[in-house]
Design a protein around this nucleic acid. Structure first.
Lengths: 252, 252
DNA sequence: CGTGGATTTGAATCACCTCAAAGGTCGTGG
DNA sequence: CCACGACCTTTGAGGTGATTCAAATCCACG
């Protein structure tokens, strides 16, 4: 399996653009003026879709671009020295990937498509030139990185303090939130990742995930049919996730 | 215990400056030209020391400044809804704190001094003005944030995949590295934090930390005397930490 | 020198893991 | 359209590393 190289000659034509993209209020263009958005749009490359299982980039690859997910979903993971992988995040439409590469010249993680996925590629070299000129874009990038740090620190809390049920509840509520923000149902969605991926992400065994799902279903918290999830008792799940009392439901 | 408010009238005089600070090669000024460094130095406030146990800022406080540790050490932690705290990092001299605040208008975590500590305060408002003009500073900030993301993702791996011994070994090697980079001994140092803090950070019970320290000592890996640590067998610790085989020893 | 917190040690318990095996699901090709 | 195989998911039984509870010891500091 090789790193997918995005189509380099950007096929213009009836290509999508930031200006008309339904995700522009969630994505990088957020808070950009029309003219600024146009300039961002000009440097974005939109390649052919990557298929399930293909890599967008690999740990150690030269850091060349950040990516925004247009459709589909990916997972990012780091490899331990013993070869074990730790999934550090799932990325749905409008979310940015690859910013951690800013630390050095290489990606510190691998990004793999969970299903057929299209992305917008933003070459960092040009992005840096552009951020030199657009303070709003710069702020948005910093905010996105801050948000990533926040997410990771929430995960650290989850991994070191929460039990299996609390972890699964947190996970289901996080996904729910993210779909809701995109205008999809918060209570009925399809998980793009396998149970194995979920277990890896949450630091549990697959069997434990399966058992918790079953228990949740018995207790009327959710209904499941394979990857289809229906949230039946959001309040109780929110409480279990530890999201009920403090601040807003602004998870991710 | 209240948030410590840094002395606002910056007492000039024989104050330290970035230009003469021994940490400038590790800190934010890294890779800045002399004139750029001077401009950064101008906006930095240097307040009176904060005492052990005092807060530099608190989760929920308005995001006003990022801080660089000059001397001493701090811990940063987030609070779960049930009041439990999760330590997300320890910060030694030259390290930056508070960047995660870039996500929103508030700090998403609390910073508390582990010992008497002096910091350089960099007001974000002025920092943003300055980054508008200094591309190198901007890049350095982005790199710092990328490095923070990297650190957190390593912690996720540690928390979900490593056992108690591996976690403690990783921790000892991380601290060793960071002291070494500052020109201190890599094999003989004093931990600024308590066993409780270590256990919290590593997602273990205090008793487990104590037991692992004892076991390491019996096996000749380390010698301990309270907070004093002597690394006796670095190779074996590195291997245990999972840092021997892949890439360089560039942990943090 | 005494006191409160931090650290260490021991014994018992438990949440989750591992191992094993039985369903399910999906894509593929005959 | 169905049969096949590969992989994913679920369920059960038993084991274990780390936790919890309890108590002794050490240490810093007033």
């Amino acid at each position: 399996m090789k790193t997918n190289s995005i189509a380099h000659p950007p096929l213009r034509g009836n290509q999508p653009h930031c200006q008309t993209c339904s995700l522009n209020a969630l994505c990088l263009p957020l808070s950009l003026s029309d003219s600024d958005m146009e300039r961002l749009d000009d440097i974005i490359r939109r390649g052919r879709p990557i298929q399930k299982g293909q890599l967008l980039f690999q740990q150690g690859d030269e850091f060349q671009s950040v990516f925004a997910v247009r459709t589909g979903a990916l997972k990012t993971y780091t490899l331990a020295s013993n070869g074990e992988e730790q999934i550090t995040g799932f990325h749905l439409a409008s979310e940015l990937i690859g910013l951690a590469g800013y630390d050095g010249g290489n990606y510190p993680l691998t990004a793999k498509a969970l299903e057929t996925t299209t992305v917008c590629e933003i070459p960092v070299h040009q992005l840096e030139t552009l951020t030199d000129e657009l303070p709003d874009l710069r702020k948005q990038l910093m905010r996105t990185m801050g948000s990533e740090i926040r997410h990771d620190q929430n995960m650290m809390l989850l991994l070191s303090k929460k039990n299996a049920e609390e972890r699964v509840a947190s996970f289901l509520m996080d996904i729910s939130n993210r779909y809701a923000r995109r205008g999809f149902s918060a209570t009925h969605y399809r998980l793009p990742m396998s149970r194995v991926d979920i277990s890896n992400y949450l630091g549990l065994a697959v069997e434990t995930i399966s058992r918790v799902f079953t228990r949740f279903q018995k207790n009327g918290l959710i209904e499941t049919q394979g990857k289809e999830i229906i949230i039946a008792d959001m309040d109780q799940l929110l409480e279990m996730a530890g999201l009920i009392d403090h601040a807003e439901c602004e998870t991710e």
